[in-house]
Amino acid sequence: MSKKIEQLTEKLVTDVISDEYELVDVEYVKENKEMYLRILIDKAGGMSIDDCEELSRIIGDKLDEDDFIDDSYYLEISSPGLDRTLKKDRDFIREAGKLVEVKLFKAIEKYGKEFVSKLNGLNGNMVLLEIDGDLLEIDKKSIAKINLYIEF
Score class of each variant (00 low, 15 high):
I17H: 05
L37N: 06
M35L: 10
M47S: 07
I58M: 05
Y28K: 05
S56I: 11
D19L: 15
G81R: 03
S72G: 08
K33M: 14
L99M: 14
F68A: 00
L75C: 05
F105E: 10
T85W: 03
E53H: 13
I59Q: 00
R94S: 09
L55F: 04
D51E: 06
L82A: 15
K103H: 12
L55S: 03
S117W: 02
L40V: 06
Y21M: 10
N32K: 09
D25E: 14
K62I: 05
S117L: 01
K30N: 09
D71T: 13
I77E: 02
V116F: 09
S79Y: 01
K118H: 05
E76I: 08
I69K: 00
G46H: 08
Y74G: 11
Y21T: 11
S79E: 02
L23C: 13
I59W: 00
L82E: 04
K103M: 11
Y28P: 09
E76F: 03
L23W: 14
E109F: 10
D67E: 10
K110T: 14
V26N: 03
E54V: 13
K113W: 08
N32R: 07
G45C: 06
G81F: 03
I93L: 06
M47K: 04
Y73Q: 07
K118W: 01
A107D: 11
L82K: 04
V102D: 04
V13H: 03
S78H: 02
Y28F: 15
R90F: 11
F105A: 09
E27F: 12
F105R: 13
L23Y: 12
D25Q: 13
D83L: 02
Y74K: 13
S79W: 02
E53W: 10
V16C: 13
G112R: 08
K62P: 03
L63P: 00
K30D: 07
R94H: 10
S18A: 15
I41S: 02
L86F: 02
S117Y: 03
S79M: 02
V102A: 06
G46L: 05
R57F: 09
S117E: 03
V26H: 04
E65H: 08
D64L: 04
E34Q: 10
L37P: 06
V24Y: 07
G46Y: 07
E22W: 11
R57S: 08
A107F: 07
R84S: 02
E114R: 13
G60Y: 05
R38Q: 15
D67N: 13
V100T: 03
D83Y: 02
K113N: 13
I59V: 05
F68C: 00
R94K: 14
A107S: 12
V24Q: 10
K106G: 07
M35E: 12
E22T: 12
G45L: 08
V100K: 01
K106S: 14
L37Q: 07
S56L: 08
E65V: 06
L75M: 05
D64Q: 04
I17W: 05
L63T: 01
L86H: 00
G112S: 08
S48P: 11
I41E: 02
L40Q: 12
M35R: 12
S18C: 15
F68S: 01
G45K: 07
E54M: 12
S78I: 02
K118G: 00
G97P: 01
G81W: 00
V26G: 05
D25N: 15
G45I: 05
D50H: 09
K103P: 04
L75Y: 03
K110Q: 15
